Computed example of a mutant assay.
Amino acid sequence: MPYAGGPMTEAMYYVLVALLNPAHGYQLMNEILDVSKGRVHMGPGTLYGVLSRMQKDGLISLSDDDGRRKTYSITIEGRTALKKEYRRLKALLEDGAEVENVEG
């Protein structure tokens, strides 16, 4: 079933950002940690669940499987969804910019 759109989970978003360069699971966990500046720690259980779902949704694909490691890549659909989500998140920040001036 293709991705239906709508807001992404944080895990989905960071997997797609990390997969702008193809990677296998262990690399992905490290890349997500780097991209999020240490804020998002994704363990194997969460990661592989998200990868499976995103593969079914057509956002990522398996680009290599040597029997030991599976390397994943973002698809064209995944790139489109990532750009759309980025614009949505950016709009949220712009809409709430006045929060910075709120005391407390």
Rank of each mutant, 00 (worst) to 15 (best):
R79A: 15
N30L: 05
E100I: 15
I76A: 14
A81E: 04
D64Y: 06
K56P: 03
L93W: 08
T71Q: 01
M8F: 07
L82S: 07
M12G: 11
P2C: 00
D65W: 01
G5K: 03
G5D: 05
M12N: 15
E94H: 02
Y86K: 15
D95T: 07
H24F: 14
L59W: 07
E103A: 02
I60L: 07
A81S: 11
Y14W: 14
T71G: 03
T80K: 12
A97N: 11
L28M: 10
R69Q: 09
V17H: 13
V35E: 12
L93R: 13
P7A: 15
G96Q: 04
V15F: 08
L93H: 02
E10L: 09
T80S: 10
R69C: 03
I60H: 06
G5V: 05
G104Y: 08
Q55T: 14
T46E: 09
E98R: 14
E103F: 02
A18I: 08
T80C: 03
R39Q: 01
M42N: 02
M12P: 00
E85Q: 06
G6F: 06
V99C: 07
D66E: 02
L92H: 11
G6C: 11
L16Y: 00
E10A: 10
P22H: 05
K90T: 13
M1C: 00
E98P: 00
E103R: 10
G43N: 15
E94M: 04
G49C: 14
P2F: 12
A18H: 04
G58P: 02
E31I: 07
E98C: 07
L92V: 12
G67R: 09
D95C: 03
E31W: 08
M1N: 00
V40H: 15
E10Q: 02
K37R: 07
